[in-house]
Structure formats: C-alpha cells, structure tokens
Amino acid sequence: MVKKSSFFPVFIAIFLLFLVGAFAPESFMNHFTVFVLSCFIGYMVIWNVTASLHTPLMSVTNAISSVIIVGAIIAGLAGNSENIFNTSSIFGFLAISLAAINIFGGFLVTQRMLAMYKKKKKDK
C-alpha cells in the first residue's frame, strides 16, 4: 500500500525537477542543489528530534530562520551616503528589528526552556 501511494508523488517530483532543469538559469541550479539536499538533511535530522523537545525545536527553528536578517542588513546599508533613509533602506531597517526580536527572543527562550529539562536525581 505504501509503495503504491508513494510512486505517484515521486513521479511528480521527478517531473517538476525536470521542468526546473529545462528552464531555470545555470546559477540557479547550484543553489537549487543545495536547497534540495538541505531539505533531505532537514528531513533526516528532524525525525531524530525527540517528541519531548518539539516545542524548543519550534522556537529554535524560529530563531535560525531569522537569518533572513542578512538580507535586511544588505538592504539597510544600501542607501547612499547623503540619504541613508530611502524607502528601500527603511524597509531594511524595520526588517532588521523584526528579525532581531526573533533571533534574541528565539534563542533565549529556547535556552530558558532547555535549562528546565532535567533528569531524575539518582540519590533518592
């Protein structure tokens, strides 16, 4: 039953990959390779996460997905020297703050949670 139902998605996936390969520009392919392999790494790694740590997993993935701050910093620093506050860089600055809330908040709250997970004391 499993084999039958997994055949169809695999076929679709191969077809989609074919479309990407046929039409996407060359520079895209390198990044796409990284992306697809990372999806598989994510798949392998996440299945190993114990169920009791699923909440910290969510808060930490939250924090790391805020690495989008990299794009925000580029946008924020792109203004010319006379006027550092053009529309584009203002969006950059705002995005920096939003991402920073997530980075600090995410990592710290994860830290706080993980510090609470304790094993049974043996001397009892």
Binding site: H31, V34, V45, N62, S65, V67
Partner: peptide, 9 residues
Amino acid sequence: IITGALVGS
C-alpha cells in the same frame, strides 16, 4: 537557503 530548507522541512 540551507536554513529555509531545514525549517521548512
């Protein structure tokens, strides 16, 4: 890209 893929999956 790596992070997005990790978090997405």
